[in-house]
């Protein structure tokens, strides 16, 4: 088995970051997330042992705000001088299975079903993903219940923490080519991988989609949505929420159009210019969010838009818990 000594991780990142922007899980005070290796103070800030960092790396491939193209305006004039395609080479190093699966969701949303989103496609094509297998699930983790194997992230290479070394497993062709470039830092070693510790929460997701298909008008949504104040925090923290807005910034005759993360929790999200709104009430929006994640996405892409990372549970100011919601849905035995 190929392994990399833990002491060689810093030299590896130093080397990689000469050619690519390398994003690593980091704890900075009370904040944690994926930060560019070059912006860090070396080894003491890398947190490969952390499970889900507070911020998922979704902004690496899908920036919170992203310039799309420049515009110029004048009397009767409207032109688009430049389109911004971000071709920088990137590496996401140490992503967990839940966040890696969210990238698979993005790949399906942005690259399939008739249209390829050129902004995402360009960035994705130039990004290598190094997964970090999870053997000790956290308190709010439930990826296994959502059909995800925590020790086998969707990645080009997967590393497995085995004491003083990481086992190094190239998964894709890209991963094999990448491995060849760093071969001198790897060595062969016989070792056993750790045992996956049990999840504190496990449930059977089978049947939830079919159940929800008959529950759009169910009275349970009143009760489930009651604590929600539509703050949208869950949508921003969610690694797989992909909804966006397109807006413009203009100074005088020059400016640019950009897209930015948006949230289905907000009234304006679906408010129409003519005054109509198909989801006018808080409860309508709450229901749409959970149905999108648990039913509609599966109907379109064959798997749910929730990867069990548990962030929405940790950050909801009013204690809304998607695991409880799934359990409640499963308990509904009479369809009204």
């Amino acid at each position: 088995m190929q392994v990399i000594d833990k002491n060689k991780i810093v030299p590896l990142l130093d080397r990689l970051s000469k050619q690519s922007e390398v994003f690593v899980p980091t704890v900075k005070g009370s904040e944690s997330g994926f930060y560019s290796w070059n912006s860090l103070n070396g080894a003491k800030e890398i947190a490969l042992e952390a499970l889900n960092v507070y911020h998922s790396p979704k902004n690496v491939l899908f920036p919170q705000t992203e310039r799309m193209y420049s515009i110029e305006q004048g009397k009767q004039v409207f032109s688009i001088p430049d389109t911004f395609q971000d071709e920088k080479s990137r590496i996401i190093f140490g992503i967990r299975a839940c966040d890696a699966k969210a990238i698979t969701c993005f790949d399906d949303v942005f690259l399939t079903h008739g249209y390829e989103d050129s902004f995402y496609a360009t960035r994705r094509k130039n990004t290598i993903i190094i997964g970090n297998a999870c053997y000790q699930p956290g308190a709010n983790c439930f990826c296994s219940s959502m059909g995800i194997n925590p020790v086998q992230p969707d990645a080009d290479v997967v590393i497995h923490d085995a004491g003083t070394v990481y086992a190094w497993e190239a998964i894709t062709v890209t991963g094999q080519q990448f491995t060849e470039q760093v071969q001198d830092l790897l060595e062969e070693k016989d070792l056993g991988l750790p045992q996956l510790k049990p999840f504190s929460t496990e449930f059977d997701y089978d049947g939830v989609v079919e159940k929800l298909q008959g529950m759009f008008d169910h009275e349970i949504w009143h009760e489930l949505a009651e604590p929600c104040m539509n703050c949208g925090t869950c949508t921003y923290m969610c690694p797989s929420c992909h909804c966006f807005d397109i807006q413009v910034k203009i100074w005088g005759d020059k400016g640019y159009r950009f897209r930015c993360w948006d949230s289905c929790m907000y009234t304006e999200y679906t408010a129409e210019a003519g005054g109509g709104n198909p989801r006018p009430d808080s409860q309508d929006r709450f229901r749409n969010r959970f149905l999108h994640k648990l039913e509609f996405f599966t109907e379109r892409y064959d798997y749910p838009l929730c990867t069990g990372c548990g962030r929405c549970i940790s950050v909801c100011p009013n204690g809304i818990n998607i695991i409880d919601i799934i359990k409640r849905i499963k308990e509904v035995d009479k369809i009204v």
């Binding site: 008739g114 249209y115 966006f244 897209r259 749409n288 039913e295 109907e299």
Partner: peptide, 19 residues
């Protein structure tokens, strides 16, 4: 039908009715 739209290509999320 019509709904508010931003992308027009099935990515931005807002114009869904069911799936």
């Amino acid at each position: 039908l019509e709904m508010r739209m931003k992308c027009g290509i099935g990515k931005c999320g807002r114009c869904n009715v069911g799936s």
